[in-house]
Simulated assay, not measured.
Amino acid sequence: MLYLGLISGTSADGIDAALARFDSEAAGKPELVFGRTYAWDTALRERLVALGQQSATLTLDEIAELDVRIGHAFAEAALRALADSGTPAAEVAAIGSHGQTLRHRPQGRPQDGLPQESRPQEGMVPYTLQLGDPNTIAERTGVRVVADFRRRDVAAGGHGAPLLPALHAALLSAPGEDRAVLNLGGIANFTLLPKQAAGDRGQVRGFDTGPANGLMDAWCLRHTGHGFDRDGAFAAAGRVDDALLARLLDEPWFALPPPKSTGRDQFHLGWVESRLGGHEAPQDVQATLLALSARSIADALRAAQPGTARVIACGGGVHNGALMQALARALPGCIVESSAAHGIDPDFVEAMGFAWLAHATVHGLPGNLPSVSGARGPRILGGVYAA
């Protein structure tokens, strides 16, 4: 009952691979057996980051070629994970591959002159697109692949995101307190676990809150040459620009009610630059972007579950000490801690989640939560690609 989960998030900072063991066919609590992050080829990563900008365009030939290139990168990560963990491919029931998100527009493509909504407006076509050809992964690894998890939920009227609240509920619910699981990837998202959710998945809610690491990573790369701000040192060298922060927080998306989701095509450097006055020091912008992440996350939690006693954080942002401290300051009276405090490696929760989703699909179990995504009902997610 071994499943391998693969994901590259909105920051495209690496391909996370997590090997998880399941003790039964029921979608219960998986055990993380092995986790590792494998670096992208530098040129391919730069291409992916550039494509996250709203203005980026591709020809059909470029999309088709990129799909296969990403598939090869994911296959290579899978093969390396199996080799590094000493696991024969024959012992893996399936690979759950999220792929690399190229566009995520569950509300449909924005149209000039129309206000943003959390649901598609008339004439809009909702869609989400992840690349990483699963046929290539199956062919190279010899393992069955489950992929394309998000589009079925979108087809059912949902946002296709977040997809992991059911796993968060299985792993981290507690009858004694209201909790929230916070994923700090390129984008931040919450899973809200009220006390009663420990026995009722219908009580679980979740939604994206906006930027986490994505904007900070992109700004840091542009001005320092480093792909991320180690422990928030670049931000700590600057001061928060309150006027800029107010302009950033004035973004209409923040006021949308859940269900809602977003991505790098909404929150990108062009979005930041459109709000700059032109005189800001780079380190001050970085400090302000960190404050934007902490403030938008805290505001969203207070609005959605004001009685939250504990925030359990996972994802790469857990390692940014300045961000974690800013979150703690923004949420007085609330414990803010890493999922490591609960015995769960924060770096591989998402990858383990796609192993969990593959396990659910293989056994004919729904993977989405309508209370989170807004879909019309539970759905079995993804397609299965035979080895």
Rank of each mutant, 00 (worst) to 15 (best):
A73G: 07
Q53Y: 10
A56M: 03
G14C: 05
T37Y: 06
E65N: 09
R45W: 04
Q54F: 13
H72P: 03
I70S: 03
A64Q: 09
K29C: 08
R45C: 08
I63M: 13
A39W: 01
H72N: 08
E25R: 15
A26T: 14
A26S: 15
Q54I: 10
G28T: 11
G52V: 08
L44M: 13
A12M: 10
G14N: 03
V68T: 11
L4D: 10
A39P: 11
E62I: 07
Q54W: 12
T57N: 03
A39H: 06
P30H: 07
G9T: 05
T57Q: 08
V49Q: 00
L32H: 04
G28Q: 10
L58W: 02
V68I: 13
A73F: 07
E46V: 00
A17K: 11
K29P: 00
A18Q: 14
Q53R: 14
T42P: 00
E25H: 14
R21F: 08
L6V: 08
A20D: 05
T57P: 00
R47Q: 13
W40I: 03
A50E: 09
G52H: 08
R36T: 05
T59W: 01
T57W: 03
A26H: 13
Y38F: 12
A20E: 04
G71D: 07
A17Y: 09
L6N: 07
L44T: 10
G9V: 04
